[in-house]
């Protein structure tokens, strides 16, 4: 009897140490590539959102939930991650809808254009952050690359064991929890790099989107309809990757057929005041803070006028949560802008 107890205790001890080690070698993404921490951050939310935005960098760098709250009283969250595949977007939506039902879901259609599995590293950053659920299992199975294994998502040690040789101090600092890296999913950049000479897209042999992509978009649309959620399709005003007219037409037809709203921000960029010499930080790929402010304003107007979202300002619990969030956002924004200003001054005097 005593022997059995010892054996059971030893097995437990082994398991606990393996889990502890696993956590140690798993990247924390608390600094540097913070995009890897964004998917997990959502689960810390305590409020129900009116709007969820889903997609890749064309979403999480372009819209500012803090502005939507302060200017429109809309409580929103961006479930974005780098190079999010459309299948992952579907499962992240499914995952979010298990716990809340927003009025509107916004999805960026850029990821319709490919269905091949591209990158293990991006997969890791998107999938690892998801909480275990059938949605996570589905997402892993649908999008892992050939070289990956399901087991390595269950036991991250199998994937990251080599990191034991290059652990960083942050692996210990953020062992138990990672501080917030985003602002309700928004990734803030305040630097500026104007877009210059963005090349036209090379002609393609075939402009139709892969069947696979349509399937996932259908599933997203169906899920939203079932839950009575309005789905808005958008295309962010990124000059690159190139967005073909042929692609745009397909999405437009699809939206019409399904009765969805589709907004191509590339088309209305000038109209809403996007200036590619000041509003992007990497030459036209992504918006910086100034570009995002303009896009957010357009979306806020749209949500209020077309989708009749009412301002929730004045709800006590929400106000309290947002007071804190806004303070952090404004504070960090001011610091980032100041730092950028200093850098610019430094360069000017050199």
């Amino acid at each position: 009897m005593k022997k059995t107890i010892i054996a059971v205790l030893l097995v437990l001890l082994s398991l606990v140490s393996l889990i502890a080690l696993s956590r140690l070698v798993t990247p924390k993404y608390a600094d540097g590539i913070i995009e890897g921490a964004m998917i997990a951050e959502y689960y810390k939310e305590t409020t129900d959102h009116d709007v969820l935005l889903i997609g890749d960098c064309e979403v999480y760098e372009n819209f500012i939930p803090a502005d939507l709250w302060n200017n429109y009283g809309i409580n929103s969250y961006i479930r974005g991650s780098a190079e999010q595949y459309i299948a992952q977007s579907y499962y992240i939506l499914e995952d979010s809808l298990r716990t809340e039902t927003p009025s509107v879901v916004v999805f960026n259609v850029q990821s319709l254009s490919f269905s091949e599995k591209r990158s293990e590293a991006y997969n890791r950053m998107t999938l690892e952050g998801m909480r275990w659920s059938p949605s996570k299992v589905g997402a892993i199975l649908a999008t892992m690359t050939e070289e990956e294994s399901f087991a390595s998502y269950v036991f991250p040690l199998l994937r990251y064991h080599e990191r034991i040789f290059d652990l960083k101090p942050t692996d210990f600092t953020y062992y138990f929890s990672v501080p917030p890296v985003s602002y309700n999913g928004y990734y803030m950049r305040v630097d500026v790099r104007p877009a210059e000479n963005v090349p036209e897209g090379k002609p393609l042999a075939d402009y139709s989107f892969p069947e696979e992509s349509w399937k996932w978009l259908d599933r997203m649309a169906d899920l939203c309809r079932e839950k009575g959620i309005d789905l808005i399709l958008i295309k962010a005003p990124s000059l690159y990757p190139y967005w073909y007219g042929e692609w745009d037409a397909q999405v437009r037809d699809y939206a019409e057929e399904k009765g969805l709203t589709y907004i191509n921000y590339l088309e209305i960029a000038g109209q809403i005041g996007i200036d590619y010499s000041t509003d992007t930080y990497d030459g036209g790929l992504h918006m910086n803070l100034y570009g995002a402010e303009k896009l957010t304003a357009h979306l806020g107007d749209l949500l209020t006028s077309e989708f009749h979202l009412k301002s929730r300002r004045g709800e006590e619990a929400l106000e309290a949560v947002w007071a804190e969030k806004t303070a952090r956002f404004e504070n960090d924004k001011a610091a980032a802008v100041a730092a950028e200003q200093e850098k610019a001054n430094g360069e000017a005097t050199d």
Binding site: S14, S17, L21, E120, L157, L158, H161, E162
Partner: peptide, 25 residues
Amino acid sequence: GTVACWAVIFGFTLAVLLLGAYGIG
């Protein structure tokens, strides 16, 4: 005794998991 056996088994399991040349790459 049991603890000695466990130390050997777990020690080598850990060595395999951490130092093993497996996985991506």
